[in-house]
């Protein structure tokens, strides 16, 4: 996570003024050991495959990213222009660490990598994403996913 002190003005002040939600100090639900878990990525980077519908302002839905989608098949249509895309431009794994997950699965650190991953678009009130997130949880269960790596962008 980027430190606030490293964010240039006026974006730093903008972020400092944003109201932050209260995060309950609740541990995650118990599950199998990490080496047995099937992991999916859920990102808010506004990623789509080249064939999929682009994101736009106020998009509250998600896009499906198959695990075998090539790095060259993923583009970013996030409506915000105020965050750094140069990391994504150099390396997909900065926002969507699919190669790292596959390596951890090959090493036995995690059980397996899900067949499908998902992208929302951030820069929106999280409560507006709740209906799509609830639907998504059902899809994740069907894919036998029991751990999600969230990459907030």
């Amino acid at each position: 996570m980027v430190r606030l002190i490293d964010v240039a003005e006026p974006q730093r002040s903008f972020l400092q003024r944003m109201p932050m939600p209260e995060i309950a100090d609740t541990p995650p639900a118990k599950g199998p050991a990490l080496e047995e878990r099937r992991v999916a990525i859920v990102t808010t980077a506004g990623l789509t495959t080249r064939a999929d519908t682009r994101f736009w302002m106020g998009s509250t839905d998600y896009r499906v990213i198959p695990a075998d989608a090539g790095a060259g098949d993923l583009i970013m249509s996030h409506a915000s222009i105020n965050y750094d895309r140069s990391g994504f431009q150099q390396d997909l794994n900065v926002v969507f660490p699919i190669d790292r997950l596959k390596e951890l699965a090959a090493e036995g650190v995690i059980g397996s990598v899900a067949d499908f991953h998902y992208s929302f678009q951030g820069a929106i009130d999280a409560e507006l994403l709740e209906p799509a997130a609830a639907q998504l949880s059902g899809l994740l269960k069907k894919d036998a996913v029991d751990a999600v790596l969230l990459t907030p962008v």
Binding site: P27, P28, A33, R37, L104, V109
Partner: peptide, 10 residues
Amino acid sequence: VKAALDLLNN
């Protein structure tokens, strides 16, 4: 990524 996933063991 490993450090984040290790939180699941906590």
